[in-house]
Computed example of a mutant assay.
Amino acid sequence: MLDRLAHAIERHCQGPWSETAVPRLSLVALDELIEPVEVTYEPMICFIADGAKRTTAGERSWITPPGEMALFTLDLPVTAVFEKVPYRAAVMRLDGPTLAAVQMELDETGQASPSAAAVTAPMAPELVDAVTRWIQLLGAPDDIRPLAPRIEEEILYRLLRSPLGPVMRQWSLADSATSRIRTVARWICEHYAEPLGIDDIAGMARMSPATLHRHFKAATGMSPVRFQKHLRLQEARRRLLAGDATAAQVAQAVGYVSATQFNREYRRAYGLPPGQDAFRLRTRLAEAGEVPVLHDGAGAKP
Rank of each mutant, 00 (worst) to 15 (best):
N263E: 13
R239G: 01
T283R: 09
T246M: 01
A242N: 14
G243M: 11
D244V: 11
A236Y: 03
A259G: 06
A247D: 15
R238Y: 00
V250A: 00
A253E: 10
A242M: 14
H230A: 14
L241P: 00
R284G: 10
Q276V: 04
A278K: 01
G255R: 04
R282S: 09
R284T: 09
G255N: 03
Y270G: 03
R280E: 08
Q276M: 12
A269H: 10
T260H: 07
R237C: 06
L241A: 03
L231I: 12
A253G: 02
T283N: 06
R237F: 13
V250W: 05
P273H: 02
R280F: 05
Q252A: 14
R282E: 07
A251I: 04
D277Y: 03
G243E: 09
L272Q: 15
A236G: 07
L281V: 11
P273M: 03
D244T: 14
A278M: 06
Q249M: 11
A242V: 05
Q249A: 12
L241C: 09
Q249C: 01
Q249H: 09
L241D: 10
N263D: 12
T246I: 01
L231Y: 05
V254C: 08
V250T: 14
Q252M: 06
Q252P: 00
P273E: 07
R239V: 02
E265S: 09
Y266V: 01
A242T: 06
R268S: 12
V254S: 11
A242K: 15
R267F: 05
R237I: 00
G271Q: 01
Q261A: 05
R238H: 08
L233W: 03
G275R: 12
A242H: 14
R280I: 04
D277G: 05
A269G: 00
E265P: 01
L231E: 05
R282V: 06
E265W: 02
A245H: 05
S258P: 07
R267G: 12
P274Q: 06
H230T: 15
A236P: 08
